[in-house]
Amino acid sequence: MNVFTVDSKKSNTATDKVSQKVLVLFSSYYFADKADKALAIHGVIHQLMPVPPELSSACGLAIGVAESYMEDVLKIFEEHKITPSHMYYYEKGKEILPYAHGSCSI
């Protein structure tokens, strides 16, 4: 009996959360292109893609990235002065939720 086959059929919310996709939207092609290049330089696995129509009627580019990389992504954006316009948890056909990246600690 293959343990991985049995386990792969079970839904594990902890694992699902780690592999959730965050879609980062930008106000311009410039920022999307700059983000794509910066993430590639730093070796962050991501996907440059058109903004899905359910998120915006305007044409634009977005970057999809696993939530587990988001801390690094935000640091890279800060370092390269890249400003995203919106960030969402996104999976086609599922509820779209705003991405909340951590809390302030003072």
Rank of each mutant, 00 (worst) to 15 (best):
H42A: 07
E91M: 10
T83E: 05
A14R: 15
D36N: 14
F4D: 11
S85Y: 06
M87Y: 01
F77M: 07
N12E: 05
H80P: 01
L23I: 15
C59S: 14
Y89I: 12
K81C: 05
Y88R: 05
S85M: 02
P98D: 04
A66W: 01
S11I: 15
D33A: 13
P50C: 12
I106H: 10
I41G: 00
M49F: 01
I96Q: 08
D72S: 15
I106Y: 09
I96N: 11
V3P: 02
T15S: 09
Y69I: 00
D7W: 10
K10D: 00
S105I: 14
F26M: 11
D33L: 12
I76R: 07
S27I: 06
T13G: 00
P53F: 03
T13L: 14
P53D: 07
G93F: 04
D7S: 13
S103A: 07
M49R: 14
S11V: 15
S27F: 08
I41W: 04
Y90Q: 03
L48Q: 03
S19T: 13
V73Y: 02
P52R: 13
V51M: 03
A38R: 11
L61H: 04
S105N: 10
S68D: 00
L55K: 05
G93S: 02
T15F: 10
V24C: 07
T15A: 12
I106L: 10
K75G: 00
S8Y: 07
V51P: 04
E54S: 13
S68T: 07
Q20S: 15
I45F: 02
H101G: 14
T5K: 13
I45H: 05
F31N: 09
A58M: 07
I106C: 05
S68N: 09
V73S: 04
V65I: 15
S19E: 13
E91G: 05
Y89W: 10
K17E: 06
L23Y: 04
E78P: 01
I41L: 13
V3Q: 11
E91C: 09
E79T: 10
E71G: 06
K34W: 00
S27W: 06
E71Y: 11
L39T: 03
Y99K: 14
T15K: 14
A35Y: 07
L97N: 03
A14D: 04
S68M: 06
V65Q: 02
M1I: 08
K21H: 08
E67F: 05
L39P: 05
L48P: 02
H86Q: 13
K17D: 04
V44P: 03
L61E: 03
V22W: 07
Q47D: 06
S57D: 10
A32D: 00
I96P: 03
Y30V: 11
M70H: 03
V18Y: 10
K75T: 08
S11L: 15
G102M: 09
D33H: 11
L25Q: 11
S105W: 11
L25P: 01
E67Y: 05
K94P: 00
S105Y: 09
M70D: 01
S103K: 08
F77C: 08
I82A: 01
T15Y: 05
E78H: 06
F4A: 10
V3G: 01
L74T: 12
